[in-house]
């Protein structure tokens, strides 16, 4: 099995380009996040393992401040402390991709990222792609159109990973999509439909 590698993201795909494209299609809240997050990361004292650490996270354009055990992963912070349960836990070991989020536009496994390490960065989860009653992100709509899921549990991770895959330039053909989406397991095995969805959304995201 292959896990997608963040290292292989070509340098030409910048965060700005990602955010620009996303904002135009999915009403993405983007207010003054980076500065506050970076300041917090730089002034933090060394953590006492017994005491909750004051963590500031910028998620989907909103700042969240939570007291966390320093060992808390970004995934558990999102799910158990911030109430954003769209990102899923399937293994907690970086083996399934269900927890995939974008950190500064790059697809990242939230279960392998400590929450404290995500400070000063912009985290995008599946909840950040569309407003409650608004239009879906092209990738979400493509997943609906192609029935690219059954149980839906891997789906948020697939969608975030697929957006990252397109932005990286790894969705140029079906073989590339298959390869670069292979870090996201779908036990329901919707794979051919996922490939079709990524193909469709790529055209819309780039068109």
């Amino acid at each position: 099995m292959t896990n997608h590698s963040d290292d292989e993201r070509p340098a030409s795909v910048s965060r700005r380009r990602f955010l620009g494209a996303t904002a135009s299609t999915a009403a993405f809240p983007l207010v003054g996040v980076a500065a506050a997050g970076q300041a917090a990361a730089q002034t933090m004292p060394p953590p006492d393992p017994q005491a909750p650490v004051d963590v500031k996270l910028s998620i989907n354009g909103e700042m969240y401040r939570v007291g966390l055990d320093v060992r808390t992963t970004l995934l558990d912070a999102l799910r158990d402390h911030i109430g954003l349960t769209g990102s899923k836990k399937g293994c907690d070991h970086g083996q399934c991709g269900a927890c995939t989020v974008l950190v500064d536009g790059r697809r990242t496994l939230a279960c392998l990222t400590l929450a404290v390490a995500a400070q000063g960065r912009e985290v995008t989860t599946v909840e950040g792609l569309a407003r409650a009653d608004g239009p879906l992100h092209p990738m979400q709509q493509a997943f609906v159109d192609h029935d690219a899921f059954q149980c839906g549990y891997c789906t948020p991770g697939q969608i975030m990973s697929a957006i990252g895959c397109v932005k990286e330039g790894h969705a140029g053909n079906d073989d590339a999509i298959r390869e670069y989406m292979s870090g996201n397991l779908c036990r329901c095995a919707a794979y051919p439909n996922i490939v079709a969805a990524v193909r469709q959304a790529k055209l819309q995201m780039e068109g």
Binding site: T85, A130, V144, D147, G152
Partner: peptide, 21 residues
């Protein structure tokens, strides 16, 4: 017809057992 629960599943609003706060 597309899945009844499609929007809930692609937006992350479908609540699975461990999602319930």
């Amino acid at each position: 017809v597309p899945r009844y629960d499609a929007r809930a599943k692609v937006t992350g609003s479908a609540l699975y057992a461990s999602d319930v706060a």
